[in-house]
Amino acid sequence: MSDYGDLLAGVRRRTKISRYRPVVLFLVPVAAILFQVYVPLFLDYLGYLELPLLVTVYFAAMRRRPVAGLLYGAGIGLAQDALSQNPLGMFGIVKTLVGYFAASASLRFDADNPGSRFVLAFFFFVFHQAMYWVLGRALIGTPVELGAARTLVLAGMNGAVAVPFFHLLDKLKES
C-alpha cells in the first residue's frame, strides 16, 4: 500500500494532501443535497446548480485518493438518487466515476489554483451530464435531454460558482 503512495508522489512532488474532519466530510454533502432539494422551490434557476457534484469534485480532488473519491461520489450520488424519481444508481454510478476521475486528475493538476478549479468543475459537470445521459439511454431507456449548448452554459455557471465555493470549503481544512 505504501508503494501506491510512492507511485502518486512520483508523479507530483508538490502534491499536498488536505485533511478534513469526518463531520465536515459528512455535513457538507448533506447540506449540498438539502440545498438542491430545497432552494429550487423558490429560486428555480438554482436547480441547475449541481452542488453535490461540486462537493464530490472538491473533496475527491483535495484528498487526492481515487478510492476515497469514488466511494465518496457513490455515497453522494445514491443519496441524490434516493430523493429523485430515478431508479437508485443513476447518480450513484455517475458520481462514482466523477469521484474517481477527480481524484486521479488532481494528481496531475494543481487543485488549489482557481483556474484549474474552474476547469475541473466545468469539465466534470459536462462529464456528469454526458454520463448521466448515456446511462439514461443505455440502461433504463429514459433519454434525458442533453442540449450541448445548454450543458456548456450550465457547466460554465457551475464552474463559476465552484471557484468561490471551493475557496469557502478550503476554510474547513483541518490544518
Binding site: 443535497i33 432539494v37 422551490l41 438518487d81 429523485s84
Partner: peptide, 15 residues
C-alpha cells in the same frame, strides 16, 4: 407543506 424539490435539473417533483 411543500418541503423540497426532487433532485435533478428538470425535476417536476416535490416533497
Amino acid at each position: 407543506r411543500v418541503i423540497g424539490a426532487g433532485t435533478g435539473a428538470d425535476s417536476k417533483v416535490v416533497f
